[in-house]
């Protein structure tokens, strides 16, 4: 058969306890298989060769989107279901856009939100959006449950702080105040099926008087990990997004970035685009905030 993958065992697990115990028992050889759109590609390329894959796609706690003030998205929820969810689209627009930017429809019907975080690609499309939504990841491991702000999940390219046996159970997004809007912009060569040169997400909450009460800016593909550019958000807080405030935010976002040059484009271009897209994403987020 036309497969270059190593041989391995495959097992479906029915509960979270089973999953954690089995992963902790063999941290080097056993892997969680979510949508497989990263893992199976790495395996076909010979970059990974696990002895065993555990498939938790039927574990109920890992699936689905629910809402009780906080929005809870199970880690195994597929991108397509994130992107089409009415509440995600209306209140967490940047996330809906980030999910929509992942690969093709076919990829998004398999790719999971937890997998997009677990791979820890600096250029992944949902982390910048999740960062501006103040996402918290719920982890479960042999030592129990812990919750981390998403920004603390990453250690470096391809690396998370997950302990052996620890899995991402869900992503939780707090409710944003009224008059909040958000936006994600992906810059790439092609309109679909391409890795971001730069990804910028923004969230803006407007006060009664039309000034910015709170703002967040987050960046993808321009640092070893997805990054919240806190100073960029602070730079427009209290402003009416006048040109000077936007320019200050753009400067702050560029300063927070540490892009590299690669075959796709140069570091200088990436840094310049961080500035341009920060302004654009803040304006778009504010325009949505005005409507809500």
């Amino acid at each position: 058969m036309g497969t270059a993958m190593n041989a391995f065992d495959y097992e479906r697990v029915a509960t979270l306890d089973e999953l954690v115990a089995a992963l902790a028992g063999d941290p080097d050889g056993t892997r969680l298989l979510a949508g497989g759109t990263d893992l199976l590609v790495f395996m076909a390329d010979g970059k990974l060769a696990p002895r065993k894959l555990l498939d938790p796609k039927r574990v109920p706690e890992l699936n689905g989107i629910s809402h009780n003030g906080t929005l809870r998205i199970g880690a195994l929820t597929r991108m397509r279901d994130v992107e089409l969810h009415p509440l995600v689209r209306s209140r967490y627009t940047a996330l809906a856009q980030g999910a929509f930017e992942v690969g093709s429809v076919q990829i998004r019907h398999r790719a999971t939100l937890g997998g997009n975080l677990g791979t820890a690609s600096p250029a992944a499309d949902t982390p910048p959006a999740l960062l501006v939504h103040d996402a918290v990841v719920k982890l479960r491991g042999p030592d129990g449950v812990r919750k981390l702000p998403l920004g603390e999940l990453y250690r470096g390219p391809g690396q998370t702080v997950l302990a052996p046996g620890e899995v991402i159970v869900a992503v939780k997004l707090p409710e944003h105040p009224a008059r909040t809007g958000s936006w994600y912009i992906k810059l790439a060569t092609r309109k679909a099926m391409d890795i971001a040169f730069v990804g910028v997400a923004a969230r803006v909450t407007l006060a009664e008087d039309g000034r910015v009460a709170e703002a967040r800016v987050a960046l993808g593909a321009v640092a070893p990990v997805p990054l919240l550019a806190a100073e960029a958000g602070a730079a427009v807080t209290g402003s009416r997004l006048e040109d000077a405030a936007l320019a200050a935010a753009a400067e702050a976002a560029m300063a927070a970035s540490s892009p590299i040059s690669d075959k796709r484009c140069s570091a200088e271009y990436r840094r310049a685009m961080v500035g341009v897209l920060t302004k654009r994403a803040l304006r778009q987020a504010a325009a949505l905030a005005e409507k809500r």
């Binding site: 036309g2 495959y10 298989l33 497989g36 759109t37 199976l40 590609v41 076909a44 894959l53 498939d55 796609k57 397509r80 690969g103 093709s104 429809v105 076919q106 990829i107 019907h109 398999r110 099926m193």
Partner: peptide, 26 residues
Amino acid sequence: GNGECGACTVLVDGRPINSCLMLAVE
């Protein structure tokens, strides 16, 4: 063979997927 071209698309439970990126056992 790596999810880029869609020639292997089939529907699984109504969802279009790349059958080169799914295990038969799944």
